[in-house]
Design a protein around this nucleic acid. Sequence first.
DNA 1: ATTAACATACAGGCTGCATGTATGCAACAC
DNA 2: GTGTTGCATACATGCAGCCTGTATGTTAAT
Lengths: 210, 210
Amino acid sequence: MQHEKPSRTQAERRAETRRALLSAARTLIVEKGYAETGTPEIVKQAGVTRGALYHHFSDKADLMRALVRQEAEEIAAEINTDTNTGQTPLEAFMAGAKAYFSAMSIPGRAKIMLLEGPAVLGVSEMAALDRETGGATLLEGLRHAEKHGALESVPLEPLAELLSSSFDRAALAIANGEDRGAYEQATRKLLAGVLSSRSEISAAVEKNNL
Amino acid sequence: MQHEKPSRTQAERRAETRRALLSAARTLIVEKGYAETGTPEIVKQAGVTRGALYHHFSDKADLMRALVRQEAEEIAAEINTDTNTGQTPLEAFMAGAKAYFSAMSIPGRAKIMLLEGPAVLGVSEMAALDRETGGATLLEGLRHAEKHGALESVPLEPLAELLSSSFDRAALAIANGEDRGAYEQATRKLLAGVLSSRSEISAAVEKNNL
DNA sequence: ATTAACATACAGGCTGCATGTATGCAACAC
DNA sequence: GTGTTGCATACATGCAGCCTGTATGTTAAT
């Protein structure tokens, strides 16, 4: 038999199939959601068979896991590029938030990372994956700010979680076409409040008779 | 006939079947998750057949919808009971947050309302349901605080959303056994910062050289 | 020739619907 | 009042289609 075929190496062949599967899965899951997307449809769009899918991934959820991981790594890479820390801690936090919003504005990304991902893999696995790729940038920032007088006797891990959830909500709203400036203003308000010292806040609250 | 018939009225019969279905679905979905719970298992635990399920609900998601609605109404009722508004706006917000945390501490409730519900019904439908039952209490509080000088030129709807997402995250953590006091402190920090006036915050931030 | 990369075939389960059955209920005659 | 008759509601059963995961077969690379 004469073989006119490209004669790809095994690694190339494998990588290309895997890439086609991830690409097809991403398109369909973004469009219709994970549960409504069947593996027959995915492999059809990828131009392979279900055999290839189950050769590369242990099950459908494992394919989703790989998709989420790929997306998380891209996000981390984009954010690390815009690592121009601002002058003050507040501006540094805002710069990080804006970079996060920008990264999450890639079409479909917010749906994958904030809706379908947690639903399929669970929040704990998503959190573990975030720790692997992104790291606890937000928490580190809070620890740093604590040394400079603000954040007296406030548990930092919970505070970081609450802020993180707000960032996620803002990113989701922005990705859904809401007014980006409004959510950035609200985010700034939250951060500015957190970064002011406790005594100053108390004074301000009392003075305004709140 | 061997056994005498209960001779329930139709309404009683219907209500009992519906209640058994909702109760069984709640138990199993809390334990194993929505996707992992099949309708055969639900009807088995409820002591009826799948015919009854599809007579009462249009499909499996509709059963979940009814479960979420029931839970939302219970939450609203519990929160309206603890309607002791605090002295200051900050204390009023904190009282509301604590009441929410308490209501969401009912076993399984956080999983239903914050994880499975949004995954199955989507965030938009969950938000609409919240608007029906709970109302926009948080947003109203912010509007009221705005009149008293704080919150100058900050978009309130986005800010309310961000705070709401933080409350949800805190409720989820508390329901998962995390330290409740720590999350309440973090919540208070967030709220205190938001409720202080913008100029005071700016002054505080500058003074602390943040 | 051996192994990795895929394709094909199959079994089990689940969902939703279509059809069948029984139970309560209302009206009417008596 | 009471029996019975017709009917709608509440539910049970059976079936078709789809999907997932696995087991087995085939092809291509080394």
